[in-house]
Structure formats: C-alpha cells, structure tokens
Design a protein around this nucleic acid. Structure first.
Lengths: 110, 110
DNA sequence: TAAAGTAGGCACCGTTTGGTAACTAAGGAA
DNA sequence: TTCCTTAGTTACCAAACGGTGCCTACTTTA
C-alpha cells in the first residue's frame, strides 16, 4: 500500500483481453494488420512502402510481436537476397474481423 | 523522404479505428471500462479501489480521455464533499461489447 | 482531538517508446 | 564504378508515459 491509499498490487492478470490490447497498443500495429488484411501476404519492403511513414526498425519490431502471438506468420526464403513474406494467420484474420467491427462502430459515432 | 527510404508522411489519417485504439491503448484503460461495465456507475474512490494498483492521477487522466470521446459520462454533484460518479454511455457499452468479443476470441486461443 | 474520506491538481523522476541514421553482404542496373 | 535493392540490426536521442508523494477544504467518524 502506498501513501496514496492505492493498493500496490503487481498486475499479474494474464487477462486475455489485456494481452491482446498490449499487442495492439503500439504505434502502427493496427495499420500493419489492416494492410496485411487488404493486401494479403506481403514482403517487408512493400509493407514498409504501404504503411506510409513507418521505419524499418519499428516495422520489424511490430512484426516480431505479432508473429510471437501467432497473429502473423513469417515466411523466410534463404535466397540471395532473402525473400521474407508476412501474412495473417487464422488468429490474425479473427482479430482483424474484430478490429473491423470496432472500426464500424466508431465510424457510426461520427 | 528520409535516408531510410521511408516516406515521412505525417499520419493525418483521422481513421476511426485509429482514434479508438489511441483511446484504449493507455495502461489501465480497458480495465476501467471493464469495471464500469460490471459494476455500473461508480464513484472515483470506489473505482480506484476496484482497479487494483491504479493511481489517482492516472485514473483521473483516463476518465477524462474516455469522457472526452463520449465513452464515459461524468456526473458531478457539488455537495461537500463533492460526489462524482462515472459510468458507461451508449457508446461506452458498444465499445465494451466489442472488447468482450475480443476477450472471447483471445480466450479461445488459449 | 486526530484520522480518514471526498475528488482531484501539481511537481518530480525514471522508464519506455518511437524516430533517425549508419551499417551489413551480395546481386543487378545505369 | 557507383547506386539501389534485399531484410534487417545497432546506437543514439528526444519526447511521452506512468508512478510517487504532497497539497487542498470540508465532513464524518473514532
């Protein structure tokens, strides 16, 4: 307990919603999913061009997070130069549907 | 254009989804909505007790954001001491439904 | 008489975040 | 020969974020 009267509980939670929200809450993340959904599997370079304004660093970072949560797959072909393609998994498509429904709701709000 | 090859477009967007995600992306925000949804209209103090670990500052901050977007209402009774009650608006309940659906999806993922 | 609760506001401070630039190695084009 | 492309990685830096403690002014409770 702090002087504030606040309980200083660590937030273990493990709440499923919390996990997804943390995944989505970073800058650019929903934009990336949006492009992958509209464009289908896309290579790193094109993805960077389509998500206008994102840097290579952040793009890679977000893709790694999304991959780790099983929302996006990564296909690596060890050619020279390498060809890496990213796309939505089944989970990713489910999540995208949910985001589209939120989009619709917010759109109706004006 | 940066040295990176990145387009340095400002992100005007005004995308409805983006707006909602920015609203929800802060720490504690979904937790607050969750409690308001389960508990009904709640005063500041009790809200702080139910959202275990949140500080008064951040709680007020989040409530102001949610109020500004019309997701939460604020009822101020100028008694002494004042009584301030927060609750979900119609928009808030819509948003909560969407979050519950995401919760359901994520829960099924294991 | 002293403590606690009411709903915050304000200042300070460390951590996290995101942006920028520079670099990799090998192939293809001007 | 120099530039561009592939898919990143790394270092550096400024800004944003969130946590903590202290303050108010009045009422109720111990």
């Amino acid at each position: 307990m702090t002087k504030d009267g606040t309980a200083d509980a660590a937030i273990p939670k493990g709440c499923p919603l919390d996990l997804v929200m943390r995944l989505l809450s970073g800058e650019w993340t929903t934009h990336i999913l949006w492009v992958l959904s509209n464009n289908g599997p896309t290579r790193h370079g094109e993805l960077r061009r389509r998500v206008e304004g994102i840097s290579s660093k952040v793009l890679t970072d977000r893709l790694r997070m999304l991959e780790q949560e099983g929302v996006v797959f990564r296909d690596y072909e060890p050619t020279v130069p390498p060809k890496v393609t990213y796309g939505l998994t089944d989970h990713g498509r489910e999540l995208d549907d949910a985001l589209r429904s939120i989009h619709g709701i917010a759109e109706r709000w004006g």
